[in-house]
C-alpha cells in the first residue's frame, strides 16, 4: 500500500524526492494544486478501484504522502 501510494504521488507530482520527505506538505511545496487533486483521484480509482468524490476527502488527506497512506488505509481496510 505504502509503495503504491508513493508511486502514484510521484507520477502526479513528477517528483521522486517526496519518497524521502513523506511529511512534506505537497500543496505548500507547489507540487499539488486543485487540478492535481483530480489527477490523484483518478489515480486512486485506477490503482485501488476506489471511486471517490472530490468532496469525500479533505485537502489535508492528501497534503502529505503519509496522510494519503493513512486516509486510504482507513477507506480500504
Amino acid at each position: 500500500m505504502e509503495e503504491k501510494v508513493l508511486d502514484m504521488l510521484i507520477e502526479v507530482t513528477g517528483n521522486d524526492d517526496i519518497a524521502e520527505e513523506k511529511d512534506l506538505d505537497l500543496f505548500e511545496a507547489g507540487l499539488l494544486d486543485s487540478l492535481g487533486i483530480i489527477e490523484v483521484l483518478l489515480k486512486i480509482e485506477e490503482v485501488f478501484g476506489l471511486r471517490l468524490q472530490p468532496t469525500d476527502l479533505e485537502k489535508k488527506d492528501m497534503a502529505t504522502v503519509n496522510n494519503l497512506i493513512e486516509f486510504l488505509q482507513s477507506k480500504i481496510a
Partner: peptide, 8 residues
C-alpha cells in the same frame, strides 16, 4: 540543499 528544498 536537497533538490526539493532548492525547488521550493
Amino acid at each position: 540543499l536537497s533538490n526539493l528544498k532548492n525547488s521550493m
